[in-house]
């Protein structure tokens, strides 16, 4: 077991940030912690990287206890916080050298780990970190988190605010790191990234809603889901929200994902209801739930 979390709770004054959280991450696994802002993801990361002490419960990382063996953990994990935390007034190269030195290693010793990523920022190696674009900062932070060859890598929302192309490149990079034997715990508010993990845990308001492989989690979705479309999105949502049999109606791209309160229902009835509301070009088709549908059903 690479990460083991047992009944961890943590509160700040009146806010319960984490409530009795338990899960394990296997060695070499790419594990996703999926949840919105304020779910408790960062608190959990800080506990596992020994920067914060839980109120109750135990946790271990790479076989070390987060309290008793905190120094050992700090030597063998890499942590990329959600907020950019490198030295803004050191250059790209200086930051990297600094982190290598702190961990008593050199850039050369573990260059193979960061090569793919570093070559992309190397043209700017003499630029101060504070002057880099968001995407480049993120790449540098990842290099610095990797330079001591960590056993476990903690990435707290590495792709928040990042465009879809850069997000895709970042995940390709994570897959390659995983192949090099590094266990990765990564958090994200983007539901589509959940599908790229071996296993994921859904977290909201400090509670774990579900743990499993992306495939199995989607199977948990118990309702029949329909894609509904028409010529006017605003009126469509409005009409569905006031339909007496609507269980849920959420916009999904060009469609609204609709579920009914009844186990069986006649599509024609919904069709004529929408038509009476003045909508045109109505289509209603059964569709497969996505991870996001599952999350919303659990969070509702």
């Amino acid at each position: 077991m690479s990460i083991s979390v047992n009944h961890i709770s943590k509160s700040y004054k009146s806010i319960q940030a984490l409530q009795d959280i338990s899960f394990n991450v296997n060695e070499g696994e790419l594990f996703g912690l999926i949840g919105p802002d304020g779910a408790g993801k960062t608190t959990l990361f800080r506990i596992l990287t020994t920067l914060l002490i839980a109120d109750t419960g135990q946790a271990s990382v790479a076989g070390y206890d987060v309290i008793k063996d905190y120094k050992a953990i700090r030597n063998c994990v890499g942590y990329m916080p959600g907020k950019f935390s490198l030295y803004q007034d050191l250059t790209v190269e200086e930051n990297l050298e600094f982190f290598a030195t702190i961990f008593k290693t050199t850039i050369e010793a573990n260059y193979h780990l960061i090569k793919d990523i570093y070559v992309q920022i190397e043209p700017f190696k003499n630029r101060r970190a504070g002057k880099l674009s968001g995407g480049m900062k993120q790449k540098l932070a990842l290099c610095c988190a990797l330079i001591h060859k960590p056993k476990v890598l903690f990435l707290d929302e590495p792709t928040t605010g990042v465009d879809p192309v850069s997000r895709k490149e970042f995940w390709d990079m994570l897959k390659r790191l995983q192949q090099k034997g590094i266990t990765i715990l990564v958090s994200t508010p983007y539901m589509d990234e959940a599908a790229l993990c071996d296993r994921v845990a859904f977290i909201q308001n400090g509670e774990l809603l579900e743990i499993g492989t992306p495939k199995n989690i989607v199977k948990e979705y118990s309702k029949k889901l329909y894609n509904v479309k028409s010529d006017n999105m605003y009126q469509l949502i409005d009409s569905l929200n006031t339909f007496k049999y609507t269980y849920s109606a959420y916009p999904f791209g060009e469609f609204v994902h609709y579920t009914d309160t009844r186990d069986e229902f006649d599509i024609k009835e919904l069709h004529s209801y929408l038509k009476d509301k003045g909508l045109h070009n109505i289509t209603i088709e059964i569709t497969n739930p996505t991870i996001e549908d599952t999350f919303m059903a659990l969070a509702k």
Binding site: P36, P189, A299
Partner: peptide
């Protein structure tokens, strides 16, 4: 809507 949960994100779009 960056980082906002999926349900609230949709309410925001409404």
């Amino acid at each position: 809507t960056g980082g906002v949960d999926p349900i609230t994100r949709r309410q925001f779009w409404e």
